[in-house]
């Protein structure tokens, strides 16, 4: 394996091989990355373990609906007389798990397509990238809504559709980062040694595009969380009357002036989660592009 300093995707000239700090280490020197990591850890903790600390059940009736001060609750009740705090502690898990699953799936496919396109070039590259471009001509949320119409918001369908619409975006980034790597000497050396194509893709190319890929993975996770939460907000959460941060905002916003917590608490949770992953993505991108020479903010 020949890991070298990850060059910015546009660098055409090979850089001297040395053992530098990893992208993560460099990124962690920045405050924005540290804040992002802290936010992410807290919010992921709440989403995963929150249900164990919830004072009431996910769908337990505790008092008069839309009331701010109810005996035995900290933040009052929601539109259905359920405890707001308990609903919020239950409501992150499904969003997070679906988002992570779809981003992981999209990474696998996107990286595979991007690497194959970059290594083979020619006809195959053209066809792959052209079809990726075409599938980008469609807003993600719209395609998800169309797919949900007849089948309904099944978890597998949401994961599949978010993964399918995310794949082309990852494939493009991977290809862009891998094309200059393919030109470099160690790839030629590996070919001369008769290494198999799969081995070249996974052991020679992949480690050298890991910087831009990490950034992209974080960015895509941010958008996947936003997309899945938005679907919940539009009323397409995976389980009926389940606690879901997106759906909660929708359910409780009518009573916003008398009981703001039902809307504000889940909205803050989503905001902190996506801002956390967004900050990490930004820190990583600055780290992997050198100290922010602004190339490839996107």
């Amino acid at each position: 394996m020949s890991t070298v300093d990850t060059p910015p995707p546009t660098a055409a000239t090979p850089q001297p091989v040395r053992k530098p700090d990893g992208v993560f280490k460099v990124a962690l020197r920045m405050w924005r990355t540290r804040i992002g990591v802290v936010l992410l850890v807290i919010l992921v903790g709440i989403a995963l373990f929150g249900p164990y600390f919830a004072p009431y059940g996910e769908q337990e009736f505790v008092g008069q609906p839309n009331t701010r001060h109810v005996e035995g609750t900290l933040l009052g009740t929601d539109y259905f007389g359920q405890d707001v705090l308990s609903r919020a502690l239950h409501g992150g898990r499904s969003i997070l798990l679906l988002a992570v699953a779809s981003t992981a799936l999209a990474l696998v496919f996107g990286v595979a397509i991007g690497l194959v396109a970059a290594y083979n070039r020619g006809r195959l590259d053209d066809v792959l990238m052209r079809s990726m471009d075409i599938s980008l001509a469609f807003p993600q949320l719209l395609l998800a809504l169309v797919a949900l119409t007849t089948i309904g918001p099944e978890p597998w369908l949401i994961v599949a559709i978010v993964a399918i619409t995310t794949t082309p975006r990852i494939a493009r980034i991977t290809r862009g980062a891998a094309v200059p790597v393919v030109e470099r000497d160690f790839v030629g050396a590996a070919e001369a040694l008769g290494e198999s194509r799969t081995r070249i893709l996974w052991s020679e190319l992949l480690p050298n595009v890991s910087g831009p890929l990490l950034v992209e993975a974080n960015l895509r996770l941010t958008y996947s969380i936003g997309l899945i939460a938005s679907l919940g907000f539009l009323g397409f959460a995976t389980r009926v009357n389940a606690a879901d941060w997106g759906l909660m905002v929708n359910e409780n916003r009518i009573a916003l002036s008398v009981q703001p917590w039902g809307t504000v608490l889940p909205a803050i949770a989503i905001a902190l989660l996506t801002v956390g992953t967004g900050l990490i993505a930004d820190g990583l991108s600055r780290a992997s592009a050198g100290i922010d020479r602004a190339k490839g903010d996107q």
């Binding site: 936003g226 997106g246 916003r253 002036s257 504000v264 909205a267 967004g278």
Partner: peptide, 26 residues
């Protein structure tokens, strides 16, 4: 750069919900 990072990360409905809390109700 910092403020646009924060705004761009949030889904539209969360942003809108905060605006409603700020300017239309509470």
């Amino acid at each position: 750069s910092v403020s646009s990072l924060i705004l761009a990360a949030m889904p539209e409905f969360v942003l809108g919900a905060f605006l409603v809390v700020l300017f239309a109700t509470n």
